[in-house]
Amino acid sequence: MNPDASTIAAGAPIEVDLSPVAEGQDIKVFWRGKPIYISHRTKKQIDEARAVNVASLPDPQSDEARVKSGHDQWLVVIGICTHLGCIPIAHEGNYDGFFCPCHGSQYDTSGRIRQGPAPANLAVPPYQFVSDTKIQIG
């Protein structure tokens, strides 16, 4: 009952062009049936994410560990709440990050869980920068 060959094949890596995404904007792409949020963060959002005392977080992880160095403005996360799998809404909640409407989990501008029942940060999918304005997810 594991995924069949065509499902696996359809889950191959995809490339996303980032050039149309302006600062402060974000886009949602689908990969393996999961929504991937790609946010072009503002300076303020990055600073907010880095000002936090990492040890105080429910799932301690620094912002630097969640983005690719040199591309710090780009946050790429799987937009699936780690609680029970709903899709959080971007740019909502108390932390200017993501807010899950199902059970009230709130994530910050680095996609880290800050409040609510979710046990972990929003997952970062495997991806790499092919060029400065293009990433490959998968």
């Binding site: 594991n2 609680h83 029970l84 199902c102």
Partner: peptide, 24 residues
């Protein structure tokens, strides 16, 4: 939501969920 309940099981949770979904 309900299939994600099984992902709470340690170690085998994720595999069980994949079996339920038959995909990603």
């Amino acid at each position: 939501v309900i299939t994600n309940l099984f992902s709470a099981i340690p170690y085998v949770g994720e595999s069980i969920v994949t079996l339920l979904w038959g995909g990603y």
